[in-house]
Design a binder for these strands. Structure first.
Lengths: 189, 189, 189, 189
DNA sequence: CATGAATGAGTATTCATTCAT
DNA sequence: TATGAATGAATACTCATTCAT
C-alpha cells in the first residue's frame, strides 16, 4: 500500500521548510563559505544526503535562503505604513517600534541580515529602501526629518537596522538600541 | 657581510608588509573561511608557497591581520582627543570629522571592519570603546549628549562607523554619510 | 484461503519477472557500475524499495540477470543441432541463420551480451563454446571449415555475435550482418 | 630562485601525459562509471588532487582520453595504405597485418576500444571507416572482396578488431586471431 | 628566498540500502 | 506488498600546506 500522494507532498513540504528554516540562521551567522553541509545537517537534525534531495547543491540552498530573506525583510507592514495619512514623524516612530520589536525574532533578524548582505553585493530588490525614502522626503517637507539626501538617509537607517540584526544573531543577549535611538537617525531634535 | 644581511632583512620586511597590506582588504571583505590562499596569493602577486615563508598558517596570517587592525582602528588620536579640555560636543564632532575623512582610506576602513568583526566574536580589545564611553558620559553631564546607557551608545556610534567601513570596502563609490549624520547618533537636537 | 495465497504467489512471480526482464537490457547496456538503482527503478516503473523486496542487493539482481543470460544464450537449439547427422557446413549455416534471426530480439541480444561480458571476466559457463568447437573440428575434417585452432575460431565466431548483440542494443536500427557474413568467419571459400 | 618557466611547463606536460597514458587503459577496461578517481590515482601513482590540477572533473579527463583514442586509432598508416597503387587484396592483407601486430600494444588496443565505444554512442569521427569502405569497393570491383554493402563490411571488419582489442585488454595472454582470419571477413575464398 | 607542482585531509555530492507508512 | 523519503558510506572534488628545484 503506497503512501498517499498528498501525504508525501506534505512530508516533502515539511522537510523542505525545516531545512530552510534552520539554514537561515546558520548561513546568516557563518556566511556561505563558513557553512559546512556536514555541520548544517547535524544542526538541522537530518542526514547530509537529505539536503541534496531538496536542493541540487549548497549554492542552490543558499540562493533559496536569500530569496526567502527578501520576503521576510521586505514585508508589507512598511508599505502600508507609508500610505497611511500620518505625519512622517509618526510613521518613522512606528516603523522603528516595529523593527526594534521584531529584531528579537531570530528569523526576522536573519532575514534583514541576509537581505542587506545581498544588497551590498548589489543583487537585492530595493523597493523597501524606496518606501523609506518617500517617508523621509515627506518628513523633510514637514520639517521633522533632518535635511540631506533621502536615499542616503534611508540607507543609513536600514544600515543601522542591519547592524543590530547581525549583532543579535551573534550575541544571545546583546545591548539593543531602542526605538528612539533608531528614529534619531532621521528625526530633527 | 653585515651590509648584505641588513639588506636581506629589509627585503624580508618588505615582502611581509606587502602580504599583510594586501591581505587586510581581502580578509575584511571575504572573512576567514571565504578567503582562499590560492586567490589571495594571486591577488598579492606572489606564489602560494611564499606566504608560508612568512606565516606558519592561514590562521597566523589572519591573527596578524587582526593585530594590525587593532592598531589602525584604536589609534592614539582618539585617546588624545578624550584628554583635551574641550566640551564633549566638540570632541564628538572632531571625532566624527576624523573618522569620516579617514574612511575613504581602504586601509583604515579595513582596520575598522576587521576590528569590529572580531569584537562581535568577543575577542577584541575594547579600550577604544571605553574612551568613547567617557566622552559620552561627559556630554550627558553637559547636556549635549542624548541620555541612555553610555556603553550602548558607544557601541551604536562605532557600529555605524563599521557599517560604512564595510560599505566602502565593497562599493567603490558609495554614498557616505557626513560627519554631522554620524554625530547625530550621540548629540541632542 | 489457499486461492488467495496462490494469487499472491502469482503476483510476486510477475513482479519479479518484470524486474528481471526490464533489468537485462539496462545492465547489458550500462554494465554493473553504470546502472543506478534509482534510474533502473524508474525505467521498470516501480519504486526503488520494491527491488529490495525481491533481491537482497544490486549484486544479487545482477547475478540473477547473469544466470538468466546463460539460459538465453546457451539454449538447447545449438546442442541439438550439433548432434544432428548433418555436414558441419550445414550446421554452421543453420546456426548462423538462427543467431542472426534472433539477434533482432532485444532479450536474446542482451542475453548474448551479458553472457560474453561475464566470459571476458572468466566467470561464465563455457559448454556453449565447446559445442561450437566440436562442429568446427567436424568441418575441418570434412574440409569445409578453415584450418586453425578450433577453440580460437569458436571464440571468434561468438565474439562477432556478441559484437552485433551489443550493437543492436545500442542502436535501434543498426546495419546488421547477414547469416552468410557470419558463416564466412568459419567456412572455406 | 624560481623554477624556470620552461622547466615548469615541461613538468606540467609530463604529468599531464602520465595521467592520460595511465588512464587510457583504466577507462578502456572499466568504463567511466566503473573507474574511481581514488583507484585511478593510486594506479597512476599520484595524489587524487593532482588529477584535478590538470582536469576539471572526471568527465573532462574521460573526454580527453576519448579525444586521444581518436588519434591513436585513426592513424595515418591506413590513409597512406589506401592511396598506394596496390590491389585491394594486398591492402587488406597489409592492413590486417598491421592491426594484428599492433593489437599487442596495450595503448593501441585501448585506443581502438575507446574509439569504438564512442562510435557506438555516435560521437566519434568516422573518416577512418570511410577509408576502409573505399578499399572494399575497390576490391569488389577487382573481384577479390565479398559482395555486400561496403559500409556494413567496414563496420564488420573494425568491429572484430574492437572485439580483440577489448579482449587483449582484459586477458593478459588471450588467443588472438591471426591476420588471415581477420582478412577473411572481407576476402573471397 | 621564491616558486608552483604535488599532497592528502577535509568538504561536497551521490547512490545503494533501509524503514515508517 | 509497495512506496518513496531518509540514511550514511562511498565517491568526487577542493584547498591549506609541503617540498623539490
Amino acid at each position: 500500500m503506497p503512501k498517499s500522494q498528498e501525504r508525501c507532498q506534505e512530508i516533502r513540504e515539511e522537510t523542505r521548510n525545516l531545512i530552510i528554516r534552520k539554514s537561515i540562521l546558520y548561513f546568516a551567522r557563518n556566511g556561505f563559505a563558513g557553512t559546512k553541509i556536514s555541520d548544517l545537517s547535524k544542526h538541522i537534525g537530518i542526514a547530509q544526503g537529505t539536503i541534496y534531495i531538496y536542493f541540487k547543491s549548497k549554492e542552490e540552498l543558499y540562493d533559496e535562503i536569500f530569496a526567502i530573506s527578501d520576503k521576510i525583510a521586505s514585508n508589507d507592514k512598511l508599505t502600508m505604513l507609508a500610505k497611511l495619512p500620518l505625519p512622517a514623524e509618526q510613521k518613522i516612530k512606528k516603523m522603528s517600534d516595529y523593527v526594534i520589536k521584531n529584531l528579537k525574532d531570530d528569523m526576522f533578524a536573519a532575514g534583514i541580515a541576509l537581505f542587506t548582505q545581498r544588497l551590498l553585493e548589489g543583487e537585492a530588490d530595493q523597493t523597501f529602501y524606496k518606501t523609506t525614502e518617500k517617508i523621509i522626503k515627506q518628513g523633510q517637507k514637514e520639517g521633522t526629518v533632518v535635511s540631506g539626501n533621502a536615499r542616503k538617509l534611508s540607507e543609513f537607517y536600514w544600515g543601522v537596522v542591519y547592524l543590530y540584526a547581525v549583532k543579535s544573531l551573534y550575541t544571545a543577549d546583546c545591548a539593543m538600541i531602542n526605538s528612539q535611538d533608531l528614529s534619531r537617525i532621521l528625526l530633527e531634535g
